[in-house]
């Protein structure tokens, strides 16, 4: 090993100073693009993704329309400046297309498409900065943009990446960790705890799988809470702007930012 950066040092800290189960800080901005129906920027640490939603609107291609539901189309653009080596990725790039396909399939179950027959929902995703967990950030940004656009969904979709360094599970990996440890990306529907997306790009030992799977599912709930707070704040702003008074709705108590540090305690894991 020698001069290599330690993924997890003896003190239980990772290369960027986080603990094993600690998520990176999350920043959310809603409605950033004025002429879109909905948009959101989410930052997981340094990973920054912008999602823009247009629709439901008349489908641009007649051949694509479904008479009983809306079709979802996803386009992903990876900015050339988003990573260390400057590289232009076209639309046909395999990795970009795979990202788009994963997001599309996840949201086809989440969005109530049957409410808008013969229309189309366009999702445009721009990856502005990559530092691990790009797919997770894409899913989270899309969730926020869709909610911002007022598109009916059965639930939030909260996504996070997780990996395992030897026998120690790690959450929310950076590029450095992602390239070094076996990892998965998981998206959950927090209300039911059902899984919307599970992607494994690397080989992972079957013994380790359940542990990081459960951990990622639990972390998804923390991310859901962050997104819910952001949405709630923006809704409150809208209600206020339109001259209405606000009363806390159901579940308002849990929206308090109890999990400021975003660290999942070990006791919680036992409960799960």
């Amino acid at each position: 090993m020698g001069s290599r950066i330690e993924i997890l040092n003896d003190g239980g800290l990772r290369s960027d100073g986080r603990r094993q189960h600690e998520l990176r800080s999350i920043t959310i901005q809603l409605a950033t693009q004025g002429n879109a129906d909905g948009s959101a920027i989410i930052q997981h640490g340094l990973t920054t993704v912008l999602a823009v939603v247009h629709g439901p609107r008349e489908a641009r291609l007649r051949s694509l329309t479904q008479h009983d539901r809306a079709v979802i189309s996803v386009e992903v653009q990876v900015a050339p400046f988003s990573q260390g080596d400057r590289r232009r990725r076209g639309k046909g790039d395999r990795r970009t297309q795979e990202l788009a396909a994963s997001v599309k399939e996840t949201f086809e179950t989440a969005v109530q498409t049957h409410l808008y027959p013969r229309s189309e929902i366009n999702i445009y995703i721009h990856v502005l900065h990559q530092d691990g967990g790009v797919l997770a950030a894409c899913v989270n940004a899309t969730t926020l943009a869709l909610i911002n656009a007022g598109v009916p969904m059965i639930d939030y979709v909260a996504s996070v990446s997780a990996g395992t360094f030897s026998t120690s599970p790690l959450l929310d990996l950076t590029t450095l960790e992602e390239s070094d440890v076996p990892n998965i990306t998981l998206a959950v529907f927090p209300r039911t705890g059902k899984v919307g997306l599970l992607l494994m790009d690397t080989r992972l030992h079957v013994e380790r799988f359940e542990e990081i799977f459960r951990l990622a599912a639990e972390a998804g709930k923390v991310i859901h809470e962050e997104m819910r707070v952001a949405i709630r704040t923006s809704t409150a702003g809208l209600v206020k702007a339109m001259g209405g008074a606000i009363v806390a709705g159901p579940g308002a108590g849990s929206s308090e930012r109890a999990t400021k540090a975003l660290e999942i305690e070990d006791e919680e894991m036992v409960d799960a």
Partner: peptide
């Protein structure tokens, strides 16, 4: 926590001037 809030009473103090907020997946 969802089970806790599940049976929120929509009946009480629900008058039109005040807006209760919600978001997807909330019971």
């Amino acid at each position: 926590r969802y089970q806790d809030v599940a049976q929120m009473d929509v009946d009480d103090d629900f008058d039109g001037a005040e807006a209760k907020m919600t978001s997807p997946g909330e019971i």
